Computed example of a mutant assay.
Amino acid sequence: MKSFQQQLADLGKRLGKNTNSLSESISEVPNYSERRKQYDAQANNDIAKLQLETKQARIQALYGASELNESWTFDRLIEDSADVKEAISIAQAFIGAHSDPSWRNSRAHMMIFYGDYGRGKSHIAGAIAHQLIQQFEITVLYRQLQTLLELRFFSYDYQAEDKASMKFREISKQLLDVDLLILDEVCVNQTILKQSAQSWLGSLLRQRCADNKNCILITNHHFNDLPKALGTYCFESIKEYETYKVQFQGPSRRGSHEEPDELSSKSGYQPNQF
C-alpha cells in the first residue's frame, strides 16, 4: 500500500504540480489539536466576557430595584467614634457570613441599629446592602416604614385613581421576596405604633422569618423602649430571628443638637445577641 506522501506525489504528477511545494504548504497548516486549543481558548474568553457582562447587568438591576442611596458605602464612612468602628466590624462579619451556605440557610437573621439622628445608622445599613449586592448578588430593598404605612393606609381607598392599592400589593410582594429588607425610621416621631400597624409589621416579619429572609431595622428609639413602641406581637416576631442589636451614640453628622440623657450617659456600647 502506498504511503500518503507517495499518493500525494502521484496526484501532483497528474495535476502537473510540484509535489515538494504541496508537502510544504500542507505542513504549514496547523494540525487539529493546535486549532482546537485556539478555538477553545477563544471560546473561553468569549464566555468569560459574556458572564462578566451578564453579572454586571444583574447587579445594575439589583441596584435599580433596591432604592439605595449611592453614597452609602464603606469608603465614605467617617470612622470618628468607637461605636462606628465597632458597627463596621459587626457589619463586615455579617457580610462575610454570607459566604457560608449553612449560615444563610440555617435561619433568619436581623440587625437592629438604634440611636439618635445623624449617627450613621442608615449609612452603614446601606453600605452592607451595597457590598452584599456586589459580592453575593443579594436582592435588597430599602424602605422607610412610615412611607409604607402611609401607602398601606391610602390603599384602602378603592375609589382613588392613583392605583395606591395596586402599588401596595406589588410592594408587599417585594417586601416578602427580597433576601435583605432594610426598614428605616421605624416608629419615627411616634411613641407607639398604631395597633393595625403593629399587626401588619409583625406579620410581615414573621413571614420573612419563616422563609429565612434577613432584615435590618433602623430606629431612633432606645432598644429597651422597642417592646412598648412596636407592641408585644411585633416585638415577639423580632425575637424569632437570630437578632443582633447595635447602638450608635457617636457625634452627629447633621450638626450639633441636644443629646437625650439616656444615650449620652454612656461612653460606649457592647453589641450582643438576645
Rank of each mutant, 00 (worst) to 15 (best):
M1F: 06
F4H: 03
Q5S: 12
Q6V: 05
L8K: 01
N18E: 10
T19W: 11
L22S: 04
S23H: 05
E24T: 13
S27C: 11
N31V: 09
S33P: 03
E34N: 11
E34S: 09
R35I: 14
N45Y: 06
I47K: 14
A48Y: 00
K49S: 15
T54D: 02
Q56S: 08
A57K: 03
A61C: 05
A61I: 00
S66V: 09
E67S: 15
N69W: 01
S71N: 14
T73E: 07
T73Y: 01
F74D: 10
D75Y: 04
R76G: 12
I78G: 03
I78F: 01
S81D: 14
D83L: 08
A87L: 04
S89Y: 13
A91C: 08
A93R: 12
I95A: 05
A97D: 07
A97Y: 08
H98Y: 15
H98E: 11
R104Q: 11
N105S: 12
I112S: 00
Y117P: 15
R119K: 14
H123Y: 01
A127C: 05
A127N: 04
A129R: 04
Q131M: 06
Q131L: 08
F136A: 11
R143D: 06
R143S: 10
Q144D: 12
L149H: 07
L149D: 09
E150G: 10
Y156R: 09
Q159E: 15
M166R: 13
K167R: 15
K167H: 15
V178T: 06
L181E: 07
V186P: 03
V186H: 05
V186L: 13
N189A: 15
T191H: 10
T191F: 08
L193N: 06
A197T: 06
Q198S: 14
L204T: 09
C209A: 15
A210V: 10
D211V: 06
N212Q: 14
N214I: 03
N214Y: 03
I218S: 04
L226M: 12
A229Y: 08
K239T: 10
E242N: 14
E242F: 11
E242I: 04
Y244G: 02
F248N: 06
G250K: 11
R253F: 03
R253V: 02
G255C: 05
E258M: 09
P271A: 12
N272I: 12
